[in-house]
Amino acid sequence: MFLRTVAAGLAALTLAIAAPAARAEQPISIVVAYAAGGTTDTLARIIGARLADKLGTQVIIENKAGATGQIGSRYVAKAAPDGRTLQIATQTTHAVAPALYPNLGYDPLKDFTPISLVAWSPLVLITNPAFPPKTVQELIAYIKARPKEVSFATGGRGDGSFMAAMFFNNMAKINPVAVPFPGEAPALPQVLGGQLPYMFCSAPTAAAPVDAGQLRGLAVTSKVRASNLPNIPTMAESGLPGYEMVNWWGFFGPAGMAPDLVQKLNTAFVEILKEPETSAKLKGLGYELTGTSSDEFKKYVGTEIEKWAALVKAEAAVQQQ
C-alpha cells in the first residue's frame, strides 16, 4: 500500500515537472457572477469555447456566484485591465443593481470597460392554462377586480422576472403580491402546477413548456416578437405601449483597458456571433444576437441604468403612499 502511494506520488511529480511549459501564457478567464449551469453560464461557455479557438489561448469560465451577481462583479472591477479577466454581465449586475443597492461597491460604467453587447432575449408573461385571463388586458382587469388577492411568482429581487413584473405593475397600476424564489427555475414548477397563477419568465426557459401546452404565453416583453415564439404578441400589441424590457448579456473588462485590446476582443466576439453554427445554436436556444461596438454598448448600458433607476424610484413612491 505504502509503496504504491509513493509510486503514484512520484508519477504525479513527473507530470508536474513535465507540464509547466504548456501553461506559460496565463489564460483568459471569463467571470460568471452566477452558479454554473444557468443561462448566463451556458452562454459564457458556448461563446468562451469559440473565443479560445479564435484567439488561440486557453479560456476558463470562473463561476463567482453570490449576492445576485455582486460578488463576481466586484471581483472583476478590481482585476487588472490586461484583458485576462473579462465578465459576462447581465442587466441585473450592470443596470438594475445600482438602482436597488446603494452600497453596491462598483460602478457599472466607471469601474468597467464595455466590450460588446452580445445577446438579448425577451421575457414571456406566462400563466397556468387553467387561469382564466387569456390576454394581458384580461389579466390586468382580473387583478384590478381582486385587489390584494392575486399573487405571482418571481425569481427574486433584482432578477429579470422581478423587474419585468415591477415594470408591468407600475405601468398597469396594479398591486399583486410578489412571491420570491431563488431564481426562475424553482419558480417555474409553481406556475406549472397552478400554485401561483402567473410569472414573467425568460424566453429560453419558457419556450419549451409553452410549446408543449403546459403553460400559456400571454405576451413577450420585447419591442418585436420573439423568433422562437412568433405567435405570442408583444406588450405594446397587447395595449401597453412603451413597455419594453429584455434580459441582455454583454462582455465587460475592468476599467482602463487599452483601446486596441478592446478592439481586438470586440472583433473576436462579433465574428463569433456571425459564425453560422454558433448563431444557429444560440438562436435555437432562444437568444437574439447583436454584437455591438464598445461605444454602442456603453451608451446602451447608460440608458438602461437610467431606466431602472427611474422605475425603482417610481415604485418606491407608490409603496410610500
Partner: peptide, 28 residues
C-alpha cells in the same frame, strides 16, 4: 507522499484549478 498523491489526484486527474507550486517570477 500524501502531498504528491493529492497533487496528482486533484490537479491532474480531476483538473481542479489548485496551484501546485508558485515561486514568484519563476514557476507557476
Amino acid at each position: 507522499a500524501v502531498t504528491l498523491l493529492s497533487v496528482g489526484l486533484f490537479k491532474y486527474v480531476l483538473q481542479l484549478p489548485v496551484p501546485a507550486l508558485i515561486i514568484p517570477g519563476i514557476v507557476y
